Amino acid sequence: MGLFSRDNDSGDDSDSAKSSFMEERGFIASAIVVGAVLICLVVWFMLGGRSDNPTANPSQTPSTSAPTGQPTEEESTEPPVATPTALPTSTRTTPPPPNSSTGGCHNKNPNQAIPRLAAPPLVTWQFEGAMLIPLQAASGPATTSPNGVRSCFAHSPTGAVLAAMVLLGQLQNQAVGIAALKARVVPGPGRDAAIAASQESAKTPKTANGEVQFAAFKVLDYPPNATRAIVQVVADLNNKAYGAMPVTLRWYKGDWYVELQEDGTLNGSVEPDILSSLSGYVRFSGSS
């Protein structure tokens, strides 16, 4: 079962409460092809369906009395959503060159320490569309193709973190998203499904949505001499909440590539984890 999948053993009340929680915050995106990677990305990168006008979707005041002979409904124990805070998380430095023969996947001796407490140092944040992505001379990306796709990351935990964030950032940029899917995802049914859904979605004009920026990460799995890694990436959803999504990467042809499920999703689910805090995560953001 994916990290974002619902618990099939939970009761109807639990499912209903969770649905209400998600709908209230506008994380349910409509008109998206089920099973495509864009489902995860739209839920994550966009706040579709939410109105900032408090009168557009007035809330109903629930009755405080229960029907005679019926048990009173217990108060929800859903943890409060964390309120994002703008904190500097990495040292800003001179941007690395778009193409380098020494950094990223060319780095012969990358640092193998897993970043668990502090953000990667000497990172520059640059806009990819509307989203800031991290760049580091040592760990990548060290190559930028003529069509703008970034690649060549160090064979290290930090390289995997940067590869996950950079690809997610490029996927939300319609100018380079489909090219990034074709070039930076492991070939297979998942990539084919994601490309097909992305091409279909591109036919619909993109609407304005709330700002979404990276906020933190956690390396969930990175064994010695890893050929596969899992990185949990956290986004600040329009300063309203934090959403976390696991990204699986494979060391393939000398670089980190994202690996999708056969249905074209990142994790077989349409919902990110909504975090109550960033405890246990490494804060890593270009916005302040």
Rank of each mutant, 00 (worst) to 15 (best):
A86G: 11
P97T: 09
A241Q: 12
A163T: 04
S19M: 06
G35L: 12
Q170S: 13
N239L: 14
S288E: 15
M46P: 00
V219H: 00
F45Q: 11
G169L: 04
N239S: 15
E262C: 08
A82P: 09
V34S: 14
P224M: 09
I195K: 00
S63N: 13
R25S: 06
A215Q: 04
P189G: 03
Q112D: 01
S145G: 09
L132D: 05
V282C: 03
F127M: 14
A118L: 12
F27C: 08
A36D: 15
V33R: 06
P54M: 10
G69L: 03
G140I: 05
A113S: 13
F45P: 00
T68S: 14
V161M: 02
G188L: 08
G210W: 07
S100L: 02
V282K: 00
A194Y: 07
S51A: 13
L168N: 00
R25Q: 08
V233L: 00
F127T: 08
V149A: 10
P58Y: 02
V186A: 10
P246S: 04
H106V: 00
V81L: 08
A180S: 07
A244C: 15
N147W: 04
L171T: 03
F284S: 05
G243T: 08
P98H: 07
L135F: 14
A154G: 06
F127Q: 14
G2H: 02
R6H: 06
I28M: 11
K203V: 06
K218W: 01
N173M: 03
W125H: 12
S51I: 09
T158E: 04
P205I: 02
I178T: 09
L122K: 07
A17C: 05
V37N: 07
R283L: 14
T144N: 08
I195Q: 00
V233G: 01
P224V: 13
V234S: 06
F45T: 14
S100A: 10
A130D: 02
S101D: 09
D263Q: 12
P88Y: 09
W251S: 12
N107K: 08
Q232N: 13
L122M: 13
T72S: 11
G188N: 08
N147V: 11
C40S: 14
N99F: 07
A118G: 06
P96Q: 03
K218G: 11
Y222M: 00
F127H: 13
Q60P: 07
T227D: 13
L237H: 15
L266K: 03
G69I: 05
T68Q: 13
L249P: 00
A208Q: 12
K18Y: 05
M46Y: 04
V282P: 03
P95L: 04
C40D: 15
D221P: 01
E211H: 14
A197S: 08
T94C: 07
A82N: 04
A160E: 02
I230R: 06
A193M: 07
S10M: 04
T64D: 12
G129R: 10
P67I: 07
E74S: 12
S5L: 01
D7G: 00
G177W: 01
L220A: 10
A244D: 15
G210V: 03
I230Y: 00
D221K: 00
A82Q: 07
K182M: 04
K240V: 15
S198H: 04
E262N: 15
S139I: 15
I274M: 12
R184V: 03
R191D: 06
F214L: 08
R191N: 05
S139F: 14
Q112S: 09
P146R: 13
A119N: 08
M131D: 03
L41F: 06
T207S: 10
G49A: 09
